[in-house]
Design a binder for these strands. Structure first.
Length: 926
RNA sequence: GGGCGUAUAGCUCAGUUGGUGAGAGCGCGUGCCUCACAUGCACGAGGUCUCUGGUUCAAGUCCAGAUACGCCCACCA
């Protein structure tokens, strides 16, 4: 069989993915004989395309699920997509705009048809891309948050919370995005610092009953103004009071007085409230109850009028008088201009402050008084805090625990209604006949004319009228996502809350094992899933939460389209292969740290794949049909190198497994890399070449040795492939199948079902590792000398060893390794030695080595080299001797440490003596 | 205003419960197209472990403080 010299990822990857999928290998059913291991995918937006964040997130999940599958768990990874209300609606609206249409032009029904059409067309893009990545999701179970069954679950939870009194409707200040024209939750309106201004405005006091509005500020009237400071001057149009701190001496006399609001000429009162900070601005605050959360509270407390001055699109409404129709920022300019004209603008200071932005379109949000639906969160948060405190749910890395708890303990009510069309429509119905005009309803359950129901009630519960209509709003997308871990498994259909009886799937696969996600959605999603799980399932949704970092570009900036710094994973897969993408990404993902990416970084994964490919080629080239099962080998059959590499392999199995169990994926990746490349290939393969490549007729023992070597090469490659499979699923399957052709013991239909390796304790051999280490040191030392002394590569070396009998025996037994790795003319062994001529020298573990290099060696260089060696040994020796002179150390340190130091000292002393001897010999030469 | 993270080689990061000549990959330099692999092989250079103090026989590792960068949360207009 001939393998190409370069590994071709493209062909291989598509071939195997199709094979796995056609065979249904990712699908699984409950099986009482096996332990379940479940992961639910963080559902990507249905309109999404794969970016590096997804690539990382899903690679992590795939590694874990493949690892667990091989360990024998019934591993299920549930995939799906999220309808992503606002985001998707925006995308479709954008495409409509190109036709010159708005969603209002189409109307609700027609618009939704368009979105579904869009979903049908592009909704599977990201699924296809996940497949390219190698994701072993059970695609038969793919869920969409707007599936009928899933939607049923969403409405069910709404109704249950409503029945429990945990859902209410009210008129409150919410975050309003004027572009998306919907309310947002607090989490959806992240605050960002912006450069703004602080405007100081004079409000004239009303002194006489028929006072005329100020049209020009004059010096004489200065004492009759109160100056307020604001970052949003346009909101003054909605002011209904000015507030000062009652303790503020400057303003005591103004309390209870009236001011005439400039530009609008409305009379408003000056009120006192202790929440006003006397030190900020002027200490006097304009109060706009309909457009600021604090002012809202003041408004409620002091029974002020609430004047909404904004239209939903962010333009000024009729309450803004002559500013009506202007955009809010346009209006700000105009208001400032006019105030300046009449002399009421005191000053303007540059001011950096935090402003909420829409997380979907980045427009500056407006605090906006409107009627919305809310979930009371405190009762839901309580048990969710408890389970994390008790350690039933663990965060990796653990520092997120604190962040989670801090948020949960300060949780606010959740605004869940959105004024968009794409989503789950609120299951709320109103009777036209009964419904009053009440804007605030703390308990909608008892409110006449409001009905909550999955389907439209035929007639009004109160008056029997059939004139019933449904609420226009839809629910926050996260109000459906928070049910993901159980709604994807068939809840509520097969779950009885009273008896807590579940269907098979739910009881088998829930709770899930680990949730893998990015830090950005801990509050949006993770926290809420915990609350939902406890509320609706009475059980945690997952045991572990693995939080990975954010993917950034090489300079540390977030990747975004607008910055043009995107690295497209699909492109990387095309150029380097999914295996390379996965391995590279995981290698550089330090636990919980952000990832800094550049195209360059994917080379390492590709090169590693190629290295594995070529090693496999080599082994297959020199391996006939498999003959000897490794378990049948006796200890005497094994050479030093065999025992060494087998020992190293056991340790590798152990440490890779342990790192995976701790979710230290990069650690396990680097262990595999190090073992395969720098131990197996660099040393073991090279050491075995002379045995393997002997072509002449072999005697019995030589023939047997060759077969043993072949067996071990085969075995190690096979075990390594299994260890690597979760990381690089494609190339491992490809090579594993080639091994399978030669070895009938490999029975599984895919490497993904072959057992996860377990270390064989009896093969761990510290002595062999130590001995091999000496060989390695000698080889490296000789190579080093040859390089430094410019010894030509073709020069055959004579090596002269001096050591005790034991050391010489060891060397003689293992001379084959030196011959394999160095260009040797002869090896000589002495217990005593006369001065060797023209030699360079080396000391390894008490073994002295001389390399006669007549005509080549530069004694000046050699002296320098030895002097450096001596200095290094000396430095170390000095430190140790200092320590051993230290009484405190001798008294307090554990005896074994002291012993170790003493031993070390003696060794170093010996080594030093030998070097000095070498140096003298060289000096004698001159 | 609170809270968190990070600081080790030019870059990206490892460094277990403190145990003592400081590790990897990439990059760099030198020599090699050596019969699996130039996506490779060999060798090498490169570090006051951010600073200050403390605990300890012993600190990159533990504690306190400082500095720098980054992040999150919070209703100061």
């Amino acid at each position: 069989m001939e393998l190409p010299i370069r590994y071709n990822s493209q062909e291989v990857e598509d071939k195997w993915y199709k094979f796995w999928e056609d065979k249904g290998f990712f699908h699984t059913e409950p099986d009482p004989k096996k332990k379940p291991f479940t992961i639910v995918i963080p559902p990507p937006n249905v309109t999404g395309i794969l970016h590096m964040g997804h690539a990382l997130n899903n690679t992590v999940q795939d590694i874990i699920i493949r690892f667990k599958r091989m360990q024998g768990y019934n591993a299920l990874w549930i995939p799906g997509t999220d309808h992503a209300g606002i985001a998707t609606q925006n995308v479709v609206e954008k495409s409509l705009a190109q036709e010159g249409l708005t969603r209002q032009d189409l109307g609700r029904e027609k618009f939704l048809e368009r979105v579904w059409e869009w979903k049908g067309k592009y909704g599977s893009t990201i699924i296809q891309q996940l497949k390219k990545l190698g994701a072993s999701c059970d695609w038969n179970r793919t869920r969409f948050t707007l599936d009928d069954e899933y939607s049923e679950a969403v409405l069910e939870t709404f109704i249950r919370l409503y029945e429990k009194g945990l859902i209410y409707r009210g008129n409150y200040i919410i975050n309003w995005c004027p572009r998306c024209q919907t309310a947002l939750s607090d989490e959806e309106a992240p605050y960002e610092e912006v450069e703004g201004n602080l405007y100081y405005i004079s409000y004239p006091l009303k002194l006489t009953s028929n006072q005329q509005p100020v049209t020009r500020k004059t010096k004489e009237s200065e004492a009759t103004y109160i100056v307020v400071a604001t970052t949003r001057p346009e909101t003054m149009l909605g002011d209904t009071a000015v507030a000062v701190n009652p303790k503020d001496k400057r303003y005591k006399k103004f309390i209870g007085k009236t001011v005439i609001l400039p530009l609008v000429n409305r009379e408003i009162k000056i009120i006192a409230d202790s929440i006003i900070d006397m030190d900020f601005g002027t200490g006097a605050v304009k109060v706009t109850p309909a457009h600021d959360p604090n002012d809202y509270l003041l408004g409620r407390k002091h029974k002020l009028e609430f004047i909404n001055i904004l239209n939903p699109d962010g333009t000024m409404n009729e309450r803004a008088g002559k500013f009506r129709g202007l955009d809010r920022f346009e209006c700000r300019k105009k208001v400032v201009e006019e105030l300046e004209k009449i002399g009421l603008l005191e000053k303007v200071e540059p001011y950096r402050h935090s402003v909420g932005h829409c997380y979907r379109c980045h427009t500056i949000i407006e605090p906006y008084l409107s009627r919305q639906w809310f979930v009371r969160m405190k009762p839901l948060a309580k048990p969710a805090i408890k389970v994390v405190k008790k350690g039933k749910i663990k965060f990796f890395p653990p520092r997120w625990t604190k962040i989670y708890l801090n948020w949960m303990e300060n949780i606010h009510d959740w605004c869940i209604s959105r004024q968009i069309w794409w989503g789950h429509r609120l299951p709320v119905y109103y009777c036209k006949n009964c419904q009053g005009e009440k804007s605030e309803i703390e308990n909608p359950k008892s409110e006449k004319g409001i009905m909550v129901s999955k389907i439209k009630p035929e007639k009004c519960r109160w008056c029997g009228s059939t004139d019933i209509y449904q609420d226009e709003d839809v629910l926050d997308t996260w109000f459906s996502s928070w049910l993901w871990p159980f709604a994807t498994l068939g809840w509520p259909k097969h779950y009885n809350l009273a008896t807590q009886k579940r269907n098979n799937e739910l009881s088998y696969f829930y709770p899930t094992s680990v949730l893998v996600t990015a830090q950005e959605i801990i509050f949006f999603w993770v926290a809420r899933m915990i609350m939902a799980g406890l509320e609706f399932m009475r059980e945690i949704p997952f045991r572990h939460v693995y939080i990975h970092g954010t993917v950034r570009d090489i300079t540390g900036k977030k990747m975004s389209k607008s910055l043009g710094n995107i690295i497209d994973p699909v492109e990387i897969i095309k150029n380097f292969g999914a295996d390379a993408l996965r391995f590279s990404l995981i290698s550089i993902t330090a636990v919980g740290q952000d990832i800094f990416l550049s195209d360059e970084k994917f080379k390492s994964g590709r090169n590693f794949g190629n290295k594995i490919w070529n090693a496999a080629r080599f082994i297959l080239m020199h391996s006939p049909q498999f003959k000897i099962p490794i378990s049948q080998l006796r200890e005497n059959d094994l050479s030093l190198a065999d025992r060494w590499i087998l020992s190293r392999l056991q340790k590798t199995i152990h440490s890779v497994t342990s790192a995976l169990e701790r979710y230290n994926l990069n650690e396990s990746a680097s262990i595999l890399y190090q073992f395969f490349w720098h131990e197996f290939c660099d040393w073991y393969l090279e050491l075995t070449k002379p045995i393997l490549m002997k072509t002449e007729q072999l005697t019995g023992s030589h023939q047997k040795q060759k077969e043993i070597t072949q067996a071990i090469l085969f075995e190690i490659l096979e075990v390594f492939l299994r260890l690597l499979h979760p990381f690089m699923p494609f190339i491992t399957e490809e090579i594993w199948y080639k091994l399978k052709e030669k070895d009938t013991r490999l029975r599984e239909e895919s490497i993904m079902f072959s057992p996860w390796p377990v270390p064989e304790e009896s093969l761990i051999d510290g002595v062999a590792e130590k001995k091999m280490n000496i060989i390695q040191e000698i080889v490296k030392g000789v190579r080093n000398i040859c390089m430094e002394m410019d010894v030509p590569r073709e020069k055959k070396l004579k090596l002269i060893f001096k050591s005790e009998e034991k050391g010489l025996n060891f060397l003689q037994q293992n001379r084959i390794y030196l011959e394999a790795l160095l260009n040797i003319e002869s090896l000589e062994f002495y217990t005593e030695i006369k001065k060797p001529r023209f030699s360079s020298s080396l000391v390894v573990e008490g073994i002295e080595l001389y390399i006669p290099l007549e005509g080549i060696i530069d004694f000046g260089k050699e002296r320098k080299r030895i002097a450096e060696e001596i200095k290094e040994v000396d430095d170390c020796l000095e430190r140790i001797e200092d320590k051993l002179r230290n009484r405190e150390f001798l008294q307090h340190a554990p005896p074994e440490i002291v012993e170790k130091e003493k031993k070390k000292r003696d060794e170093l002393k010996q080594e030093k003596e030998k070097w000095i001897k070498h140096l003298q010999e060289i000096q004698d030469r001159d």
